[in-house]
Amino acid sequence: MNHVQALIDAIGEGAVFALIAVGIGLVFGVLRLINFAYGQLIMVAAYALAFPGNWPDAASIGLAVLAAVVASLVMERIAFRPLRTADPSTMLVATFAIAYLLQNGALLQYTYRQQGGLGDSIGTLSGLNQAVTIGSLHIRWVTFLAIGAGLVSLGGLALILTRTSIGLQMRAASMDFRTARLLGVKADTVIMAAVAISGVLAAVAAVVLSISSTSVNPTTGFQETIFVLVGVVAGGIDRLVSATLGAFAIGFAIELVGTELPNSGATPFTSNVYMPSVIYLAVIVVLLLRPAGLFARRGQRTVERV
């Protein structure tokens, strides 16, 4: 096994997780809500990629972005906004319900289309599955895309957050929503902005994920999102940077543990089927040592909700 190869693949995986983390972290910032339905947003975007079949890549990606943003905004309007002042557990369970709704809706459309097999193939940018060979390294283009998309999206977001008024308002709102509103920051507007951007990021994640998997099914994005949720909290969900780093670390570790542990062996922790246990155990240790997250600032307080 080539360790450099494994490292590069791990960085690619980490980049995808980081993208998902930013989408989750942005919404958490302004709503204090962990959106368990974020994976289904990715799924919606992936179905939008699959839907047109033979459109040019740019067009189907555009459709995916549109679908994810619209789905994200609808979610906000029908569930998050009315429940903003409710108990956090209520909003959380509402995201379960939405996730369940979207997942089963995706299942249902197979019945309507009278199509047996579950899963639609996605051909968008499929050329990127080819690998370039550099010495003994085989790196698929999609790995570069993942890293590049991660960097560009994060860079773009950083510009929005630091250079624009709405970005500043979003940051202020996620630090202290009440005071931000006293200064005239419109709650609905910043929340919708965060939710819309998180939709765009879901679509980008969907593009990257579906290049590797070449298909979409009702569970697309779900497992990744669970890992990312765990990662953002282990990293420190109160700041976007620490949350993103946490998710990157999880993605990186998953890929690395998966390739470095042997393939067989039933005894716990001796083979790569136990990768989730390794990851989760590490997360528990991190949280016990640093409950606010591995990358959180010392003595960081948790912020009140709207």
Binding site: V233, Y280, V283, L287
Partner: peptide, 15 residues
């Protein structure tokens, strides 16, 4: 943190 740590316990148990 408690929520995610207990989720991790579930993940380990399942795994």
């Amino acid at each position: 943190a408690a929520g995610i740590a207990t989720l991790a316990v579930l993940g380990i148990t399942y795994n």
